[in-house]
């Protein structure tokens, strides 16, 4: 079990807690500074998951809630790698996703948008990366949906993504957007991120090479988690 420190998180790259155009951040952002904490075992360990925790169908949103047929919508394959900042794959880590259906409606008791529920679509999936850090999902492309921020705000099509890594301090939740969506540039949640390059990194690219002809189109989305420091001199460096 390695307990090497992590690279410092770049808090100018991530969104700040307080981003007033995203209104609900205003009362939910700490006003005092975060306390910087050098990592101990509490931060450098984290939960692990195995194939006993999930079922093989869990990564197939076309099938994992199908009742009477397939969900309606644009069939997509979503795939990519989980890497760390040094470019090393993160194997056997849990990736979880959730999303609205093709019409922008979530299967959640708190969602009251008038677009209908799809009886064959749940909207969540999970998988473990393989030994090379690869993951794959099959789903339908989610629709945009309106939300109560400004009077006329619409979220771009997006899929929520949750990843663990090997350390509790690597824990990350983000959102994936789709190449070419004109709503991305207008979204106050996207724009909580100050650096356009960080936004671009959240936009999944159309990947024709990974499509299944006459079946599903594909998007590629790589995820980067914090990297681990080498312990030069103290132990044998494990390479950067």
């Amino acid at each position: 079990m390695t307990t090497r420190d992590l690279y410092q998180r770049d808090r100018e790259w991530h969104p700040p807690a307080l981003a007033p155009d995203y209104k609900s951040s205003v009362a939910r952002a700490p006003r005092l500074a975060l306390l910087s904490l050098q990592s101990s075992a509490s931060e450098l360990t984290g939960p692990t998951f195995g194939h006993g925790d999930i079922d093989p169908i869990d990564n197939d949103l076309i099938r994992n809630y199908a009742k009477s047929g397939d969900p309606i919508g644009e069939r997509i394959i979503l795939h990519g790698r989980v890497l760390d900042e040094s470019g090393r794959p993160v194997p056997n880590t849990l990736v979880e996703i959730w999303q609205a259906n093709a019409g922008g409606r979530y299967r959640h008791k708190k969602d009251t948008y008038l677009a209908p529920i799809d009886p064959n679509f749940g909207g969540c999936g999970r998988t473990l990366t393989d030994e090379n850090g690869y993951y794959t999902f099959r789903t339908v492309k989610p629709g945009a949906y309106p939300w109560r921020n400004w009077v006329n705000n619409w979220r771009p099509a997006h899929i929520h993504v949750s990843v663990f890594g090997t350390a509790f301090a690597q824990r990350l939740i983000t959102q994936l957007y789709f190449e070419g969506d004109p709503l991305i540039a207008k979204c106050p949640i996207v724009k909580t991120i100050p650096d356009q390059r960080a936004i671009d990194q959240l936009v999944a690219a159309l990947d024709l090479n990974a499509t299944v002809p006459f079946d599903s189109i594909a998007y590629k989305f790589d995820i980067v988690l914090r990297g681990h420091r080498s312990t030069f001199f103290e132990n044998r460096p494990e390479g950067n």
Binding site: W13, E85, S162, T174, I189, I193, V224, L225
Partner: peptide
């Protein structure tokens, strides 16, 4: 180095 994927609200 790669940059860490930016966080977004859950």
């Amino acid at each position: 180095y790669l940059k860490e994927t930016a966080s977004q609200t859950a």
